[in-house]
């Protein structure tokens, strides 16, 4: 297969776009497209102060690289989850990338902030029923927003790609989780109640494109998966969607784009107005919540700390 732009040997073929490109042209194409999505979905501007969530994985490091190449002002945020070897290695990757590219990286550690690592916390809460992903996701979202608010950032960006987006969309559609559907999209607007604007500049790239970008740019990322990712529903959904994509190239992209169009034309408007009207401030942390008193984050971590004390007392007795 040949590059459409120069006729050299292609490095990647994107069947959904009927587009094959060589390494050089692919490395130009990704930032061009990213810039196009940033403008199309009005994600942020040249002067915006951007907080970029960095996990050490391919998507977040590729995004950091692209935004830097495009000249945006970014600060990375690495959240230490305390998942043994995996967390140590991914933090190393994030730090190495920041140092080599002369970028600012803020590191926060969940255990330092809240008194327990993610795996410890998941054992001490009902949330997620012993599986850490639910507490982990909740904690990451909360900390991103907290750091963004405290640091006065205009927007939080994450490296979510189209496969991530479509897997979530698929799951929410199967459950007709209209509240979640109403909130899904390339941009989550800020709310008066203190939720910082969120944007996903890679939301239209397939996962294999972001992976190809990191490989071609020679970016070192953590290749191993988090040990808890195994068997995750999101991975199961991604595999199912890839099976369909195989037969109908472009299906994942059109699923996402037609969802965005449907939303644009007013589907879920009721739900999103309803959700906004229900937002209150958490009495402990001040972040917005749909719960009447304390947000899910504060409730979960208060519970973890309480149980921790009781188990400790039990041990010493």
């Amino acid at each position: 297969m040949r590059c459409r732009k120069c006729g050299e040997k292609a490095a990647i073929n994107m069947r959904q776009h009927k587009l094959a490109l060589c390494g050089t042209h692919f490395l130009d194409w990704i930032p061009e497209q990213t810039q196009r999505f940033i403008e199309k979905y009005r994600m942020f501007g040249e002067d915006s102060r951007i907080l970029l969530a960095v996990s050490g994985g391919k998507d977040s490091l590729a995004l950091w690289d692209v935004l830097q190449r495009l000249g945006y002002q970014t600060t990375g945020l690495y959240i230490g989850l305390g998942i043994n070897e995996y967390s140590m290695r991914s933090q190393e990757m994030a730090e190495k990338f920041a140092t080599e590219n002369d970028l600012n990286l803020t590191v926060v550690d969940v255990a330092d902030e809240e008194g327990a690592t993610i795996p410890e916390a998941s054992k001490l809460t009902e949330r997620g029923k012993g599986k850490p992903c639910s507490v982990c996701g909740l904690t990451k979202r909360h900390m991103m927003n907290r750091v963004a608010r405290e640091g006065g950032y205009d927007v939080v960006t994450t490296g979510h790609n189209l496969d991530d987006e479509v897997a979530v969309l698929f799951g929410n559609t199967l459950n007709w989780a209209v509240g979640y559907l109403a909130r899904q999209g390339p941009v989550l607007e800020e709310t008066a109640a203190g939720l910082v604007r969120k944007a996903k500049p890679f939301c239209r790239f397939y996962e294999r494109e972001t992976a190809a970008y990191t490989l071609l740019r020679g970016i070192n990322y953590i290749y191993e998966e988090c040990p808890y990712a195994e068997g995750a529903t999101s991975i199961y959904h991604k595999e199912l969607l890839n099976q369909m994509e195989e037969v109908r190239p472009g299906l994942k992209l059109s699923f996402y784009l037609s969802f965005l169009r449907a939303k644009e034309s007013g589907l879920f408007v009721q739900e999103s107005t309803l959700a906004k009207s229900k937002l209150a401030q958490c009495r402990t942390c001040g972040q917005p919540t749909t719960a009447p008193d304390q947000c899910a984050y504060c409730r979960t971590w208060d519970g973890v700390r309480k149980r921790r004390v009781t188990t400790r007392e039990g041990e010493t007795r």
């Binding site: 391919k58 982990c136 996701g137 996962e207 294999r208 808890y228 999101s234 991975i235």
Partner: peptide, 10 residues
């Protein structure tokens, strides 16, 4: 072959 799927809650 480089695996490209990654997962977990995002």
């Amino acid at each position: 072959l480089i695996a490209v799927i990654s997962g977990g809650s995002l």
